[in-house]
């Protein structure tokens, strides 16, 4: 079923990271309805990522990106997996669950 979905990404705040995500939507034939990105300063909600990846975020290092897109269900899983493959993406979450660099969690954690 085609419906509007929201995806949330946590990614490295590096030059070129955003355009890789946006470019991927275009390359794979998906459309972006809306997009919002900003650096994260409060890391408390993302402690589970720090624990899982055994890292510590510092100020200005990571961004949160929200994308609204309209796709059907099977495509959504493809999008999540393709985004998760981008080197600068740390985690991506949608209705299907959360991808955290290879690890799939069955709930939307972001």
């Amino acid at each position: 079923m085609i419906e509007e979905r929201q995806l949330t990404l946590i990614m490295e705040n590096k030059p070129g990271a955003l355009v890789r995500v946006v470019g991927l939507f275009h390359q794979r034939g998906y459309n972006i309805e809306s997009l919002h990105v900003e650096p994260i300063n409060d890391f408390k909600p993302y402690k589970f990522i720090e624990d899982e990846l055994n890292t510590k975020f510092s100020e200005g290092e990571i961004s949160r990106l929200e994308i609204k897109t309209t796709v059907d269900d099977p495509l959504m899983r493809q999008i999540l997996r393709q985004i998760n493959k981008l080197i600068d993406v740390i985690a991506v979450s949608g209705n299907e669950g959360t991808y955290l660099k290879g690890v799939l969690r069955d709930e939307n954690l972001l």
């Binding site: 490295e12 990846l53 055994n54 080197i87 600068d88 993406v89 740390i90 660099k101 290879g102």
Partner: peptide
């Protein structure tokens, strides 16, 4: 070590 890249 690239924290955002851990291939299975």
């Amino acid at each position: 070590n690239i924290r955002s890249y851990n291939p299975p």
